[in-house]
Design a protein around this nucleic acid. Structure first.
Lengths: 343, 343
DNA sequence: GTGAAAGCGCTAACAC
DNA sequence: GTGTTAGCGCTTTCAC
């Protein structure tokens, strides 16, 4: 068909018998166009099968319709969940997602290299997944650069940038409560990497629940993992090697919980009869192992959608300049087979 | 710093005391610039911290530096592997990845809507993940549209579009050989969805290996799954309910193999002692369960990289117009705990 | 409510 | 080797 000669706004204007400007107005859904004119233009657009050129729009106007999503060393399952949802919502809103894997962000010069890289694409906005969202050096550079940004997950810093967060503390507390309710009082905890603020918060939630239940906190039952299956398995082994092993283990994400299950199965410890194991996030892996994980459902999809919405709003002309802060309070515990009443 | 007033090529040209064109040549690494001039320009670029504007480049020249990656209903683990590698290679080559989830591609009108959507972004090229790469209606439309495309995974159609494929048949045959070698002769097979050409090929490889070993093919041992964990678990249950269950099960991907392991564990069938289970792909889940999966390593990362390379080549000026066809023969079986010598 | 002119930042094609 | 002249397709003024 239209092999390498795409229809332009000019041709649409001619066909509709109006000026380019009017077509542009229709395209941008501006209100100051007479209904009959709008219809004529829309007919011409449809007839010619016209598609606006994103590049030209980006150059001339402000918006590029491109939203960046940057991450660093994510858990694959978290990333997929994030991507799929962000993508879907972008599509609905007519945006496109540009993915940036900020793999080599180790020192300050890397950080500025990344900002440079981001600045050649003319992103309308940027979504930062944890733990990037708490990398203050990066945040500062991006802000200087003036790119609207949404921070995902808890961050200590940013009042000045929009955020979408989950109440990790409350969620971890709820999960620990459940464990206690099921009769456990010797509960191991696997913490996430400390560069994720949510790691500390999940740990806090765990401790608060213990305290509320009058259970003595035992440092020997807390280990730090790195969110990988592998680390969960290693730590599971170490916990089971303790003189008095825990009767339940709460891992700060599903991958590590799956690792603990593997460690238990390898040494024929029955789950959940001899050892209950619970996770956090409710990503795909939680239901893809046996026994399936009881886990905290983190509404990653909703949060991704909110992040896209915020960029979309911030980009629009009627925007008061204030950053938005969304707290997602949709805390749910998904109960599956990896936790049962303690016999 | 440069809040909303980015440096342009003009300023660089002034600072370096040359014309915009010369700066442009340096930017595009063209050879016809005197070394001393090039150095001057590069110094100016560095001093001003200049970043070219992608939109302007895309509008003026041909290239947008944007590569699309489209998929439909992928297994999350396959998708992550693909993404991570494609992303990394894009970065190395100075491209950016635009992800398109073609979720609602069910009928022909959806197909053309998608092509329209793709046409507003000015993609340099498009990578199609299976099973999109064998959707002939989509392929035809994209070709008419004239967008350079790389098809990932086996496709029946396309001689006219570039491809990057894996020898699924040979790989499945090798895996089946291994199973036979370990003493199995009653081997269940879980086929993938039939809209993936590779499903048929993996099945072929399985049958060819049986034939070569003189083992009678038994239709009752073949089931069709949909690449999900869930379907693997269901089919695992059905296989174990057979009057004479298989001693080994070969699933066409890792997620389904993990499902079979879960089904076995749920009914306390020992893996691999009572039932050996092997998968295909060697995605993250293969090593994230216990026992870990023996599986065919599909070089997804290499293939993604090749796909990006092809787009990059096809985009460049010295391109003879012929589609490229890469066959990846890097077949490896990763042996882990889910398969052992039959006792 | 609509149109005309100008130009966003860059590169193609041609000069010199 | 390098500079000049035109646009790429659209949106922003600012007229009418």
């Amino acid at each position: 068909m239209n092999k390498r000669q795409p229809i332009t706004i000019k041709e649409v204007a001619e066909k509709a018998g109006v000026s380019q400007m009017t077509v542009s107005r229709v395209l941008n859904k501006q209100k100051l166009v007479k209904e009959s004119t709008r219809e004529k233009v829309e007919a011409a657009i449809a007839a010619l099968n016209y598609r606006p050129n994103l590049m030209a729009r980006g150059l001339a106007g402000g918006r590029s319709k491109l939203i960046g999503l940057a991450y660093y060393n994510p858990s694959p399952s978290y990333l997929s969940a994030l991507l799929v949802s962000a993508l879907k919502h972008c599509r609905d809103l007519g945006h496109h997602l540009v993915i940036e894997d900020l793999a080599d962000i180790e020192n300050d010069s890397d950080t500025s290299a990344i900002v440079k890289r981001l600045s050649t694409i003319r992103l309308d906005g940027l979504i930062l997944a944890p733990p990037l969202s708490s990398n203050t050096a990066l945040l500062k550079l991006i802000q200087e650069f003036g790119l609207p940004t949404v921070l995902l997950g808890n961050t200590e810093s940013a009042e000045s940038q929009s955020t979408v967060v989950f109440d990790d503390t409350a969620a971890a507390q709820r999960m620990t409560d459940l464990l206690i309710e099921k009769g456990h009082d010797r509960i191991g905890f696997i913490c996430g990497p400390l560069d994720h603020p949510s790691s500390g918060q999940r740990h806090d939630g765990y401790r608060q629940a213990l305290k509320a239940a009058g259970i003595q906190f035992d440092e020997a039952l807390v280990f730090e993992g790195d969110f990988t299956f592998r680390s969960g398995m290693d730590i599971g082994d170490r916990m089971l090697d303790l003189d008095v092993p825990p009767t339940a283990i709460f891992a700060s994400n599903d991958d590590m919980a799956a690792g603990v299950i593997a460690a238990a199965q390898r040494r024929s410890v029955q789950v959940p009869e001899q050892l209950a194991i619970v996770g956090f996030d409710d990503t795909a892996i939680a239901a893809a192992i046996w026994p399936r994980l009881t886990t905290v459902h983190q509404p990653i999809a909703e949060m991704a959608q909110d992040a896209v919405d915020i960029i979309s709003q911030v980009t629009s002309s009627d925007w008061n300049g204030q950053p938005l802060h969304l707290i997602n309070n949709n805390i749910q515990i998904i109960e599956r087979e990896s936790l049962s009443e303690r016999g």
